[in-house]
Computed example of a mutant assay.
Amino acid sequence: MHSLQGQNVTVSYGTSTIIDQLNIDIPRGKITTIIGPNGCGKSTLLKSMARIMKPDGGTIYLNGKEILKQSTKEIAKQMAILPQTPSAPGGLTVYELVSYGRFPYQKGFGKLTARDREMIDWALEITGTIQFKHRSVDALSGGQRQRVWIAMALAQETELILLDEPTTYLDLAHQLEILEILYSLNRREHRTIVMVIHDLNHASRFADYIIAMRNGKILTSGNPNEVMTKEHLREVFHIDAEIVQDPRLNKPICLTYDLINQDEQKRIKLGV
């Protein structure tokens, strides 16, 4: 069963078509990573699926219903979105920011209920940010702040979580920390997670399903062993990659790579 689907989705910026007649199915209860070169339409696709951008054509379905025919609160109870560079008003405490995730459930004057506070504390605990709850968001490091943003998305209590490059600007240890939190959440809570991610080895390590894009189209999709191949990476990224199997995780990893020459790039584009 698919929790999020797009049929014939077309998205443009001005006169430039970024995504053209794209079909996509996000498997429920799995971790899906979207990979591809810069400017291929990954973030545009994620924003369209999250209803941040309205497609010029096609239809997106959330749990079987057209997303554009659902109210904002209905969608917010089913799907949380963490953009690439989230920003918050200055002076907010961690607890206040995470409490914003409870907005879809609030009525009247928006006073937090016992259930709201329970979910906020749970989100702070699972992301390891409970000790920062009274601290200003502005005073946190990049890694701490990113965990707090994820806590806000978790407090929203949705089955589906979309994240646009959640490890950007983080060092290696903090990248791994964030991805392991999301992996644990998927395995323990069965949340459906969709991430745009640049690091191919992270995409392979943490994903059940990978979607590879180039020039606004999906070139291939499947499990990591199906997508992380020498042939597919040549087509998607125009690189000659050495792929080996990680002996600990039994997942493919890109050991090293070189750029392919211009003539071969032209042949790939022409499909010859």
Results as ranks from 00 to 15, higher is better:
Lys251Ala: 03
Ala203Cys: 05
Gln70Val: 01
Thr167Asp: 13
Ala139Gly: 10
Arg214Gln: 08
Arg145Leu: 15
Ile18Gly: 08
Asn250Lys: 14
Trp122Val: 07
Thr15Trp: 08
Ala80Ser: 15
Gly41Ile: 01
Ile210Tyr: 09
Val94Cys: 05
Asp171Phe: 05
Ile239Arg: 11
Phe103Leu: 12
Thr85His: 12
Val94Trp: 06
Asn186Lys: 01
Val236Glu: 09
Leu233Glu: 06
Gly143Asp: 01
Arg248Ala: 14
Asp171Tyr: 03
Leu97Tyr: 02
Phe237Tyr: 14
Leu249Gly: 02
Ala212Phe: 06
Ala241His: 02
Thr167Trp: 06
Thr220Ser: 11
Thr10Ile: 07
Val227Gly: 09
Glu159Ser: 13
Ala207His: 11
Ile210Val: 11
Gly110Asp: 11
Gly14Pro: 11
Arg234Ile: 01
Ile260Thr: 10
Ile60Lys: 01
Gln5Ile: 14
Gln106Met: 12
Val236Gln: 09
Asp56Met: 02
Leu185Arg: 11
Leu62Phe: 05
Ser204Thr: 00
Gln175Val: 06
Ile253Asn: 07
Thr167Met: 13
Asn38Met: 02
Gln156His: 11
Met195Phe: 10
Arg28Gln: 13
Asp246Ile: 03
Thr33Arg: 00
Thr85Glu: 11
Tyr95Gln: 14
Gly108Ser: 08
Gln106Asn: 05
Glu118Met: 13
Phe132Cys: 01
Ser71His: 05
Gly216His: 02
Ser184His: 15
Gly143Ala: 03
Glu264Tyr: 15
Val236Phe: 03
Glu74Asp: 10
Thr93Lys: 08
Arg267His: 10
Thr256Asp: 12
His202Gly: 07
Thr59Leu: 00
Leu249Trp: 15
Met1Leu: 09
Leu154Lys: 12
Tyr95Glu: 15
Ile24Gln: 10
Val148Tyr: 12
Ile197Trp: 02
Ile52Arg: 03
Glu235His: 07
Asp246Ser: 04
Pro83Ala: 09
Gln156Pro: 08
Leu176Arg: 09
Met152Ile: 10
Phe206Lys: 03
Asn8Gly: 02
Asp56Tyr: 01
Ala50Pro: 07
Pro104Trp: 08
Lys266Thr: 15
Ala151Gln: 02
Ile126Lys: 13
Ile34Tyr: 02
Arg135Met: 14
Leu182Asn: 11
Ala212Asn: 05
Thr44Met: 04
Thr256Tyr: 13
Gln262His: 08
Val227Ile: 12
Pro247Asn: 10
Leu259Asn: 06
Leu140Ile: 00
Gly91Asp: 10
